[in-house]
Design a protein around this nucleic acid. Structure first.
Lengths: 196, 196, 196, 196
DNA sequence: CTTTAAACGAGACGGTACGTCCTGTCTTAGT
DNA sequence: ACTAAGACAGGACGTACCGTCTCGTTTAAAG
């Protein structure tokens, strides 16, 4: 074993997965219902029928809880993977549009609340970043890179920058609560995917 | 007296401007020191040597206080107007770069915290939006429009969209705490300011 | 004003007597129902429809609350004054007997619980001491002193010691939960009230 | 096998005496250091390097633990037997005096804390009672009875009552934290040991 | 010697209470 | 009328223990 991690033998009961799941589901529920600011550890504990200590034993606070929910896919349809139809512009536009009115009433609220949370917690921001950009395949950056390799895009397109720019538009518009038209997106994607 | 809403009598002192200023300065101080989440009405009242009621009488909560600070220029150099040297690309790049390392330590923290606040309060978001885009002349959108009229830019460039995209990059990068190079900015601005 | 006490002007609302009374009554209720150990600040706050802070603002904890209840006569019939019929032995015996089965079921429990509380809190112990011995007239010590002056008792009887001895018997018997007969009391009082 | 309660088989290890001793010593240590109220099962388990269950398996709670410590002589010098020099008054006075400043700093604190504990736990009260009065020979009651038989005392002296009265004085004075002089004791003992 | 089951250390669990901090409203006394 | 001060009911914070319950290990009697 590579890391001689700190547990030195360690018998005793093991972490309860029931509790863990109940907590994360409660977090998701409260988050979706009341946003990040309205989320309370107390409320989560009550909703999950769990002692507060059980929460504090494994998480450091709201931010960590939400981060875990995020990676677990409890806050997000998870199906925001970019599909690959062969047409980058279409794929990316579709994906963005999909994300913009993040499926159903309050979808944008979730993203907004998440952004607010990320603004005040660095690790959560990292998680959100990875999730949005898609560190894993299925993310936009990946789709763009694939397109680049296929020759769909001019060489010299900075896929990471392009991703951030696209997300940036989604993000500002979400924060300031201004709508975005399909045309705007289309135009932007087109402009970005063509190197100078 | 023109409007009959003005009740018959109305004696007593008027709103104290001393208190108002002390409060906004205290808000700015606390915000800068502890961020939006760490800001408390109680703390502001204490720091401003002011009764809590005086705050609640004139403002509705943290968000409004911060919004007022914002428009008052207490949180921001306010001098983030885009200068007009005749070279749009240079002007805009400079402005963005200036905003990105928002003057020294913690500058980015202020923007980040404001974004967090905006995420949970719509009116504050509007104020921030106006301030960043510059509804007034001196803002980026204005600069772009001017450039358009001068023929510096291709017609058909959507100046509002371009502004949001630029701000978007700043915003995401600020939230996820990733740096942006001058080259990236330059490349982006150039791409944006050229219509298809 | 003799003491230039710390308040220096001090405007603002005054302590609410409603709250104060509600709290002390709640304390008395909980104490009587559940004893000193079973008394919780939380429970008192809930029963008195009061914020916990209002309790902590004016009292330092359970002990102080109970002490206040005690001096307020909320835990005790208060009518444990020794009556003066002219016959010391009778008066004192009656008083002790009265105190021993402190009026009604659980009377002894109250005394026992108070003794437990006094054991772990010095100030409360002082209050209890004064209340039992009767620093005020109406107390045993006072009655004994009066008897002394009247010549009912031999000179040289140490009234303070005698009081403590009498109380001592009540106290040990209460703590160890052993009953005391009227004869025992009578015999003891007689022995004590005769100097050697 | 006489009692059928003993279940058919019963293999496995027997009760560990190491654990038992470690626990009682830890209880004594914590009790002496922090009093009865400050004593926690958790703390005892930690101090004794023992699982909490091992405590709950054999004892019912704080009170039982302290009771065991008491009978084991871990909280008390145990050598508070009344010596028999032939002079009852002297012997008893000496014993009481000895108990009053129960050997050095905090001696009185131990007694006080034990009384507090006894006030809230009947069985512990019984143990304490027996220990103080000395159900076994060596106790005061025994000494008095012996003196009675020898003719040192008037007949008709109620030795049990006398014992309780003496203890009573010690107890009240301990609880209310008032000192007792040697003269007081002497006078009291003399008075008690003479029947009417 | 193997089986078997209780006792062990450790500690996670659902809870209750702690004492602190802040919220937004209300109440004074002082201009 | 407006202020500074601050008490109020309420609710969330993060911590400490409670008593119960699982773990995996150790150990001793029964087979």
């Amino acid at each position: 074993m590579a890391n001689p991690e700190a547990h030195a033998h360690r018998s005793g009961p093991v972490r309860s997965d029931d509790a863990r799941r109940a907590i994360l589901e409660a977090v998701a529920g409260e988050f979706l219902a009341k946003g990040y600011e309205g989320l309370t550890i107390q409320g989560v504990a009550a909703a999950a029928h769990v002692g507060k200590q059980t929460i504090y034993r494994w998480w450091g606070g709201k931010a960590e809880l939400v981060a875990d929910c995020l990676v677990e896919g409890l806050l997000w349809d998870t199906e925001l993977a970019v599909v690959d139809t062969g047409d980058v512009v279409h794929d990316v536009t579709t994906w963005i549009a999909h994300m913009l009115d993040l499926d159903r009433p309050g979808g944008r609220d979730v993203l907004r609340s998440l952004l607010g949370a990320a603004a005040s917690d660095e690790p959560l921001a990292q998680h959100l970043d990875e999730l949005l950009r898609g560190a894993h395949e299925g993310g936009v950056t990946h789709r763009l890179t694939v397109a680049c390799e296929r020759g769909e895009l001019d060489e010299g397109v900075d896929t990471v920058l392009a991703t951030d720019v696209l997300l940036g538009l989604v993000v500002v518009r979400t924060i300031v609560r201004r709508p975005t038209t399909h045309d705007e997106l289309d135009s932007l994607v087109r402009q970005l995917l063509t190197a100078r």
